[in-house]
Nucleic acid binder design. Structure first.
Length: 449
RNA sequence: GCCCCCAUCGUCCAGCGGCCUAGGACGCCUCCCUUUCAAGGAGGUAACACGGGUUCGAAUCCCGUUGGGGGUGCCA
């Protein structure tokens, strides 16, 4: 029999990085063992459910490249199974009805307005094997009688989880460590119902800089946010796979297919991991650099054709961008970095960056002389990168400046920023002489006298 | 409080009794390259929480201490 795993999110918020990592590790286990990945929506909490988020969660999983073989199943559609399991437990005396004050009420069938609690044994142990943590044991005496059925007529997570895992023949429950202490309760239900136990694997938690469990409320962790900031899904998934696990050969950035073939759930480590955006960015930059131009253009499209693009839509030229990409691709960390590297091509006037102007023009050396000199020199020199470079360099030398310093005022005048593409290539291949001269004059005018 | 889990560079990962004067990656620093920024190249910084055992030998096994985290809901 092949392994059957499930990712079982509850639709109470957007998919966040912790859940995505759990989904990914389930998926990795399924794909690396030839098993089956199920998707189950645990929507038993009618108070908190946000049904409109279900499709969003599906889309984020797909975006990450996480697919599933069965489902989605919805716990809310399995109420009869849950109810009959509770009736069985009630009839067997393994559970009891109780009122709002938690007082036991006589009766052996579910009744409106009453909750049902599982009667935990007074003594004994609940040992279980965890693929990541080895043997874990809880004493029954430590387990209070817990609610399995709410007074509003819905099952709790503990009951639904046990029944569904049994019905769906789930063999491996791979989930976050925050659920570790709920395992013995589920196991007790499974035993009382006569069902086998799945094997557990509790993943180390993802934590913030305070080493607290990542929380949707206080931490910026929505997968959607990372997507809109310009992270590539393959970079995101690759990085997520590195949290709690590492390849035996230390090659961290690699195709997911290779990770699948190297992954073993038992190799996952036990301690919590900090989600490090800096490293994520590095991974992303590496993937960005490796993208063929055509592919890059496709991926970056939302950032350059969207309404947020810092230029009038009618001035944007895809062919120009396509030709320009090789000049900047290796400089980007996020897709979202692209606009500010290319905006000067698609605007009438460059978007002047205050800090850049300040450093290159105000306190930078000899900005006036450089602009004046460049305006004169570039008026007649051959319009090609080397000639432009030589011309600017000559003006610089005349003012005692090396090229690095000399080009700064020109760069800011033409592109609006001190950081950008190779200047002379950009000018020679993507702008004409008149436009460059015009921008130099405009900048010079601002600098008067 | 009680229960459970965890403990190697700032961070992530490797290490599964000798190959460890602890390795890789991110970050940071220095230098080289250089038309900015990157990229690339060469270096550097930096860790086995502590105390006891076990063993010829411990980062690796055991116990304890300390520290951190999770749980303790008619949330999941």
């Amino acid at each position: 029999m092949t392994d059957r795993v499930r990712f079982a999110p509850s639709p109470t918020g957007y998919l966040h990085v912790g859940s995505a990592r759990t989904a990914l590790f389930n998926w990795l286990h399924a794909r690396s063992t030839g098993g089956t990945m199920l998707l189950r929506i645990e929507d038993t909490d009618t108070e908190r459910n946000r049904p409109e988020l279900i499709d969003v969660i599906f889309r984020e999983l797909e975006w990450l490249g996480i697919d599933w073989d069965e489902g989605p199943y919805f716990q809310s559609e399995r109420a009869e199974r849950h109810r009959s399991a509770v009736e069985t437990l009630l009839a067997d005396g393994r559970a009891y009805l109780c009122d709002a004050e938690n007082r036991e009420v006589a009766g052996s069938t579910i009744r409106d307005g009453l909750a049902v609690r599982f009667r935990t044994p007074d003594e004994g142990q609940v040992p279980f094997t965890d693929l990541i943590r080895d043997d874990v044991t809880f004493a029954c005496a430590e387990l209070e009688d817990f609610v399995i059925w709410r007074s509003n007529g819905t099952p709790t997570f503990l009951l639904a989880n046990a029944v569904d895992d049994a019905d769906m023949a789930v063999t491996h429950a791979i989930r976050g460590e925050d659920l570790l202490s709920s395992a013995p309760k589920v196991l007790l239900i499974l035993d009382a119902l006569g069902h086998p136990h799945p094997t557990y694997a509790h993943l180390p938690l993802l934590v913030n800089e305070q080493r607290k469990k990542l929380s949707k409320r206080r931490d910026d962790v929505s997968i959607a946010d990372y997507r809109t900031r310009g992270f590539l899904p393959e970079a995101m998934a690759n990085y997520l796979a590195l949290l709690g696990w590492g390849p035996p050969d230390d090659v961290e950035i690699r195709p997911m297919q290779e990770i699948v073939s190297l992954f073993h759930i038992g190799d996952v480590n036990k301690s919590s991991a900090f989600f490090d955006v800096k490293k994520l960015e590095h991974v992303n930059a590496t993937y960005l650099r490796g993208l063929p131009v055509a592919e890059f253009l496709e991926r970056v499209d939302p950032w350059v054709t969207g309404t947020d693009a810092p230029w009038p839509a009618e001035r944007f030229d895809r062919d120009v961008l396509a030709a320009f990409v090789p000049l900047i691709q290796e400089k980007l960390r996020l897709l979202g970095d692209t606009p500010r590297f290319v905006d000067f091509l698609f605007r009438k006037d460059p978007a002047l960056d205050d800090a850049s102007w300040e450093s290159a023009m105000e306190k930078g050396p000899a900005a006036r002389e450089m602009l004046d000199g460049a305006i004169a020199a570039l008026a007649s020199c051959p319009w090609e990168p080397e000639a432009l470079k030589d011309a600017v360099n000559e003006v610089g030398e005349a003012n005692g400046l090396k090229l690095g310093k000399a080009q700064a005022p020109i760069r800011v005048a033409v592109t609006g920023r001190t950081v950008g593409p190779p200047l002379f290539e950009a000018m020679a291949q993507f702008m004409d002489r008149d436009e460059v001269l015009r921008r130099l004059r405009v900048a010079r005018h601002r600098l008067r006298p």
